[in-house]
């Protein structure tokens, strides 16, 4: 799972409530080489919930600035850093509210619910 995708996921257990986002992240960040695509990352950053990304990066001990730099769209060093914020292969997402854990195995998050959670 790309750590950037953490931004898109929330707890989906029925009745979990308004505090179902952001999820906490657990695991070891693994760097995977990928081609830098400036257009992609600029677009992502214009939509991203930065505080959630920052929290996720703290959870897995990645060093990011605590707030979005004002010049972020022109700050190539920062954009490259975000682009390289990388993957979790083994670990989990954790809901602070209802304590549900969504395991991550082989880089795939499991968000299948049990019958009593739907």
């Amino acid at each position: 799972m790309r750590i950037l995708s953490h931004n898109m996921l929330q707890c989906i257990v029925k009745g979990c409530g308004a505090a179902n986002y952001p999820l906490r992240l657990n695991g070891e960040a693994v760097h995977k080489e990928s081609e830098y695509n400036e257009d992609f990352i600029k677009h992502m950053m214009s939509k991203i919930d930065y505080p959630a990304l920052y929290q996720a990066s703290q959870d897995v001990k990645i060093d990011l600035p605590s707030s979005l730099p004002e010049d972020y769209l022109d700050n190539e060093e920062f954009l490259k850093k975000i682009h390289d914020v990388t993957h979790i292969e083994e670990g989990g997402l954790y809901c602070n509210n209802c304590k549900r854990i969504y395991p991550i195995k082989n880089g795939i998050v499991n968000m299948l619910l049990n019958e009593n959670e739907v």
């Binding site: 799972m1 790309r2 995708s5 931004n7 898109m8 996921l9 929330q10 989906i12 986002y21 990928s34 082989n106 880089g107 795939i108 998050v109 499991n110 968000m111 299948l112 619910l113």
Partner: peptide, 28 residues
């Protein structure tokens, strides 16, 4: 889901795979 990950890896595309029912994981 694991097989899909391997297909994406072979094609070198940035695909994130989630195990879930329909679009339920993507309500955001």
């Amino acid at each position: 889901a694991r097989a899909a990950k391997e297909t994406a890896r072979r094609a070198n595309i940035p695909l994130d795979i989630i195990c879930g029912d329909l679009v339920s994981p993507l309500s955001r």
